[in-house]
């Protein structure tokens, strides 16, 4: 995708935090992240559990849980800053211009309403589509996510569907309002392995047909290689490295990215699987300096005391590590 593309989403210096115990405890779930996404592009958001991936997704929708709050930063989406629009306008943007696919297909659908009803809702509320046209639209959407005999299945209820089918229906819901961006928060984590690949292929086909941009959250780097144009690796609420998929895989700059790639299981490899030592840090009590230093094999005195800056490389790759500072100096 080298053609003249327009930037759809630009997140700048975004900070979000959760407060608990009457403000006594502050968790900085998103700690100054920057990224941008072009139209039709797919970005993978990678990282361990609790590193802020899901919070980032919800922040884009401006729908954090009650204890959470976006502190500062801007989210430019389709030419307007989402931090400046009114609540009512933001509600219209959700579902109409951006759709979300959640992790658990078994829990994502309301058990008391038909598939038809739930798939139709965004089109009905945001696009004002009614009656027969609406029914046709639902049938088209269900057909596009490959639900067999959609005219019959749309009158059924979620409990009559398998997990894979439900997740495809959630996909249809996310497309229902005709969005420009879809955020998929680990959409295949709760699916059978055999269904996972099917679902990923479906998402990619849908993206090619509709030209939506996709943010794909996962902790599976294999999926990223298959699905994405670019990757952002998150650690402790920060993006520690980002760049094109090719650069990140062939030339990972950050030790965390290197460790992640090393820990992908490979077929035929008899060596024990590499694991990153230690646990992801507690976001309420972050280590000093670089948050990754306690687990980093290359950590130096400097890493413990000073936070590394972002270092850009010529090809759009960006890394937040003291080693990268050296790399950049040496060319």
């Amino acid at each position: 995708m080298v053609t003249a593309t327009k930037t759809l989403l630009k997140v700048k210096d975004l900070y979000a935090q959760f407060t608990g115990f009457g403000g006594a405890r502050v968790v900085r779930a998103i700690d100054g992240i920057n990224f941008s996404l072009d139209q039709g592009e797919t970005m993978g958001l990678v990282g361990e559990s609790g590193c802020g991936k899901t919070t980032t997704c919800h922040a884009i929708f401006r729908l954090l849980p009650p204890a959470g709050r976006i502190v500062s930063g801007s989210i430019e989406f389709d030419g307007q800053d989402l931090m400046q629009v009114s609540d009512g306008e933001m509600r219209n943007i959700r579902g109409r211009d951006m759709g979300m696919i959640l992790q658990d297909p078994m829990a994502s659908l309301d058990p008391l309403f038909t598939i038809m009803d739930q798939v139709a809702e965004p089109a009905h509320h945001h696009r004002g589509i009614r009656g027969g046209t609406l029914r046709e639209r639902v049938v088209d959407l269900l057909r596009s996510v490959r639900i067999p005999s959609p005219e019959v299945r749309m009158r059924e209820f979620p409990h009559q569907m398998s997990g894979g089918m439900r997740q495809r229906i959630v996909g249809a819901i996310s497309l229902s309002g005709g969005p420009k961006l879809i955020v998929a928060d680990e959409p295949t984590t709760n699916l059978d392995v055999t269904i996972q690949l099917q679902y990923l292929n479906l998402l990619r086909d849908l993206q090619q047909e509709t030209g939506v941009s996709l943010i794909f959250v996962t902790h599976n780097l294999g999926i990223v290689a298959k699905m994405c144009d670019k990757v952002a690796v998150m650690y402790a609420g920060k993006i520690v490295e980002q760049g094109s998929v090719r650069d990140i895989y062939n030339n990972p700059r950050h030790p965390y990215t290197q460790a992640l790639i090393q820990s992908i299981p490979r077929l035929g490899n008899k060596d024990p699987l590499y694991v990153i030592p230690g646990q992801p840090p507690n976001l309420a009590e972050l280590p000093t300096g670089c948050a990754f230093h306690p687990r980093c094999p290359f950590a130096t005195e400097k890493c413990i005391n000073e936070e590394p800056p972002y270092v850009s490389f010529g090809d759009g790759q960006e890394s937040k590590c003291w080693l990268s500072v050296e790399d950049a100096k040496n060319g």
């Binding site: 509600r91 759709g99 309403f113 229902s176």
Partner: peptide, 22 residues
Amino acid sequence: GSEYIKLCRLKGLPETVVIVKH
């Protein structure tokens, strides 16, 4: 607190629809 209510909000449904209908 359920996921499907979360999805309803992510769909941009008006709050009255989320509460009364779902």
